[in-house]
Design a protein around this nucleic acid. Sequence first.
DNA 1: GTCTATAGACGGATAGAC
DNA 2: GTCTATCCGTCTATAGAC
Lengths: 208, 208
Amino acid sequence: MTLPHFSTKDRILYAAEELFAQQGFASTSLRQVTSRADVNIAAVNYHFGSKENLVNEVFRRRMDDMSRERLAALQRAVEAHPGQLEPILAAFVEPALAMAQDRHGGGAFIRVIARAYAESNDSLRKFLSDQYGHVPREFAKALVGCVPGLGKEDLYWRLDFLSGALTYAMADFGLIKRPAGVSEANHRQRAAKALIRFAAAGFQADAS
Amino acid sequence: MTLPHFSTKDRILYAAEELFAQQGFASTSLRQVTSRADVNIAAVNYHFGSKENLVNEVFRRRMDDMSRERLAALQRAVEAHPGQLEPILAAFVEPALAMAQDRHGGGAFIRVIARAYAESNDSLRKFLSDQYGHVPREFAKALVGCVPGLGKEDLYWRLDFLSGALTYAMADFGLIKRPAGVSEANHRQRAAKALIRFAAAGFQADAS
DNA sequence: GTCTATAGACGGATAGAC
DNA sequence: GTCTATCCGTCTATAGAC
């Protein structure tokens, strides 16, 4: 996939994203990236300075969009359906779904996120927490009003369960394999819908 | 951590497990492993043959136990509480909890599992699927009878959600940080309990 | 901005002495 | 079983021509 109408820098980003998704950060070499992007090996250091910085840029590009969309969707959900649980959960899940269906490698990015949680050494982890930690906190605030009687500790646990389930399912780690007759978009759509329903019931369970 | 009363082979396994948990497989070098285990660099290839085989052995040592315990707990749950959902979920969750609380590094292993989902290249993935894929399938069979009206597709989705949430929570990837006054064992115990309750409600939700 | 060439470090694996 | 020494490949990063 050479994408000749994109700049060298963008071609590197796309190629890196796909390879990181397939192999992880550590086992992806800059040589693989530049070979797939069809650019010279030296271009990475010219445009990004270092491999670590390339990793951060791959993240920033997608994560900024997804976080912005999640927060916007949250605001719309709270205004349009005050006190309702499922719209808030949808505001959390659906931007991830949309990302996974994006044409230009967004599907790969969901797997990149999944890897980041597992693979992150402290530097990447700190980067993620500093830059995007406010997003789940905003959702927690909104959810407090929807599930009366749910303590803060249980609320936070359940948000973590939702994140884990979302990451795992969108990254196709589980048992479920897409059936031959179902398109990838359709498959993910059904996953998102199933997850929202599952989580809505879970959030409404009596506190433990 | 030198553990002088363990054999060279075991010291390598313990050291590898901890480093894999912290850094992942690809970014952990055999030199780091042997240095931490305080054994000679050549010992890895003498005892394990290759790095890939060392990775497999790290898994086998813990996974055999955990799978056996899950299946045994499943059988006990089905016999003692036929048709009940929560005991089956507990049989899935609690062996992971026990592993996470194990004295000799089992806690690290939970994070190794989380990494494996994300990082496994095809060889590790195939190894895990071949060796341990029957476990979630047994749970799926048992769950069919507990949630009448739930289609197979939704059942499998929900099992995947449970696995994701479990892995994520036990590996401490989420928002929740253990409060200062709570012991690690107690913290995980509460997580497991919260997860079982969350998932039980989720499994009983109407199909989507 | 893009290339070639290479420096310099580190990786897994092995040979062979003890 | 354990060691030293080493082979050989790959990696990131950079210098310098164009």
